[in-house]
């Protein structure tokens, strides 16, 4: 049967019918748009609740003393001095280990690796490690760093653990950044007589640096908030002293004693306070959480900004 006009076959009322149909479809369209907006709104509300609740409970605790005091049995005088110092030192170890290893591995996989079994194994490993739960890294560290290497519950053990944890993040970011560099840039450099390493060091690394930085910052922000692996290696939760200063030793300019010192970090301190039954400590937990949240959010924001900023600047 050949319809007389479009749509008329199914709807007796012709054009008016089509219009009604379209109107109904458009209503559905509009409703889904509303649904999406609501979902977005819900996410915003949850974030507002999370942030607001911490702000209300924690903000009164935030004072200069909170940052300069050690944890204490009395909630009112307890602070996060050992926690933020510990976090910075652990992050230092993590960055020093994970950044060169991650960038090096990323460069190897993108620029050097031949298509062979070894490369496949490495690639599968990186993908797989990115999906391994963080607490498993804690178990690895407990067995390997704490007992086998005899590092104990130290800053070095924690830093190494978190470095392995964020290694896939750095590798993936490095690879993705390198992949955006067009092949004709490499050819141009080779045609000028560059060696492979010259191409990598003069071109590949500088041009992919914004992308790499984004990955490094996101990785470190993740490491700062990681709690489970640090608990798993058995890090103490009550530390009322600072690790030895890197600059304390008069004879050597820099001492590495702090690497083997016991420590606490921000999320561990927060966890410790959450676990206390007394309500006064919950306020401390909120304050510590607020500081932690601001640290990670500002790092993530910085990473996002770098990415958007440089994406606009360099157009291949």
């Amino acid at each position: 049967m050949i319809p007389k006009s479009l749509g008329a076959s199914s709807s007796a009322s012709g054009v008016a019918g089509i219009r009604r149909l379209i109107a109904r479809h458009k209503t559905l369209d509009w409703l889904f748009g509303l649904l999406g907006t609501l979902a977005l709104l819900l996410a915003t509300l949850v974030f507002a609740a999370l942030f607001g609740q911490m702000l209300i409970n924690g903000a009164p605790q935030l004072s200069w003393e909170f940052f300069t005091s050690f944890p204490s049995r009395r909630a009112a005088s307890a602070g996060i001095l050992s926690a933020w110092v510990g976090t910075i030192l652990v992050m230092l170890v993590t960055a020093v280990v994970a950044v060169p290893l991650g960038i090096g591995a990323g460069i190897y996989l993108e620029e050097y690796a031949r298509k062979n079994l070894l490369t496949d194994i490495i690639e599968i490993n990186v993908t797989n490690l990115a999906g391994v739960p963080s607490i498993i890294y804690g178990l690895l560290a407990l067995g390997l760093f704490v007992y086998q290497f005899g590092l104990g519950q130290s800053i070095a053990a924690a830093g190494l653990t978190l470095a392995l944890l964020i290694l896939p993040v750095v590798i993936v970011a490095t690879r993705e950044a390198i992949r955006t560099i067009p092949q004709n840039i490499r050819e141009g450099a080779y045609a000028c007589g560059s060696s492979k390493w010259q191409v990598v060091s003069h071109h590949i690394i500088p041009y992919s640096l914004p992308g790499i930085m984004t990955g490094v910052i996101i990785g470190l922000a993740r490491a700062i908030g990681e709690t489970a692996p640090i608990i798993t290696i058995g890090a103490l939760t009550f530390i009322a002293f600072l690790p030895p200063s890197p600059f304390s030793n008069a004879e050597q300019l820099i001492s590495f004693e702090w690497l083997l010192a016991p420590f606490t970090v921000m999320p561990i301190q927060m966890f410790n306070w959450i676990s206390r039954p007394e309500e006064a400590f919950q306020a401390n937990a909120a304050a510590a959480g607020l500081v932690l949240l601001l640290m990670t959010l500002s790092m993530n924001a910085l990473a996002i900004w770098i990415r958007y900023h440089f994406r606009k600047k360099i157009k291949w």
């Binding site: 996410a43 974030f47 609740a49 999370l50 609740q53 911490m54 409970n57 996101i218 922000a221 993740r222 700062i224 908030g225 990681e226 709690t227 489970a228 999320p267 927060m270 966890f271 959450i274 919950q282 937990a285 909120a286 959480g289 932690l292 949240l293 990670t296 959010l297 790092m299 993530n300 924001a301 996002i304």
Partner: peptide, 18 residues
């Protein structure tokens, strides 16, 4: 993306106390 970057311990606190 920022929501994905919030430390899990903070989410734990939020779950228990909110």
């Amino acid at each position: 993306e920022l929501l994905g970057g919030i430390p899990t311990i903070v989410y734990g606190y939020f779950a228990l106390l909110f």
